[in-house]
Amino acid sequence: MLGFDHLQLQQIWWIVISLVGALFILMSFVQGGQTLLATTARTELEKTLIVNSLGRKWELTYTLLVLFGGAFFAAFPRFYATSFSGAYWVWMLILMTFVLQAISYEFRKKPGNLLGSRTYEWFLFINGSLGLFAIGAAVGTLFTGGNFHISETNLITWGNPARGLEALLVPFNLAVGFLVVFLARVLGSLYLVNNLSEEGGLVDRLRNAAFNNLLAVLPFLLFILYRWITMTGYGYTENGEIILEKGKYFQNLLAMPVPGLGFLLAGLVLIVLGVIVTRFTRSTKGIWAGGPGAVLTGVALFLILGLNKTAFYPSRFDLQSSLTIENASSSLYTLSAMTLVALAVPFILAYVSYVWRLMNSEKISARDIENKKSHDFY
């Protein structure tokens, strides 16, 4: 249909998924901000400022998560079938925390609601901490593997009664979970410093939090890098046989000097730069370095996971059940049709950026909150 062969389309769709996943990492500033709500806001007004700043964006983060799942469903349905039905409890946990998030923005300030605003703020904290941690741990299992067996008729058997929750016993998965939570808090601080028009008090605390949370990211980042060098990864041969390869993910980083190692290093440098500018100057523009930095880092993370003949969802239970972009993808026809439809994506992105500019045209100030001027008051 488009002149691409099957493998090229599989690679294109892995790159698309990597980009969407990386954009979700950027947008996780909403979840990060929700945990900062509990730790940096001291007065009712400060809380309402943060909630209103995040309340304008949370749906975009949620939509990206759905898009990430949707793209996986369409492009690599065997992964979707395996992970969502097999690792059932992890995904249910994640989804439940996102249900809590949705109702919290809706009902926090509704008059006469059953639960008080403190309960909804607590729900937002659960989504920002537990929800994001579980997503990080789930991404970790894409490196360390899940306990599944796939039959010839695509029936999934999960080899552990915890149905995915056993992933929380693997240190690498925990490290990815903590990394995602603390990175989201860094991004959340940078975003809020940029989006709130107030100076002093809250914003100073947020500048401090950006730096402290970056320090908290470091040990987990170092551990992950160390494990990428030392851990055994899952590759596959020309005829699709899954093989174990020591240091596979680090080799992938080196094998893709620009989008692998290059994006990772550039991304990390940009994040550090954004935080340092925010912490040690009066600039509010840190998110413009930190945000793209998070996207570059995320793209590198996903690319080394699926490209260069790597199994992106290995099975610890039955090695040959491991999923690769070649054995888990949709047919040539489906991928071609999807690629045609995806040509409309730039228009959607243009619309999103237009709406974003409208929402950000005025910074949120305490006066807006006190006068309830904003028509979308949360």
Partner: peptide, 30 residues
């Protein structure tokens, strides 16, 4: 018995989330 385990599980979950909130507050205020 399952109900008891569920209650224990929830209690532990809430306790660890409260602990996490406390630790994060400490980190932010350092």
């Amino acid at each position: 018995m399952a109900l008891v385990w569920l209650i224990i599980w929830f209690a532990l979950l809430i306790l660890s989330l409260k602990g996490a909130e406390y630790l994060l507050k400490k980190i932010d205020e350092l």
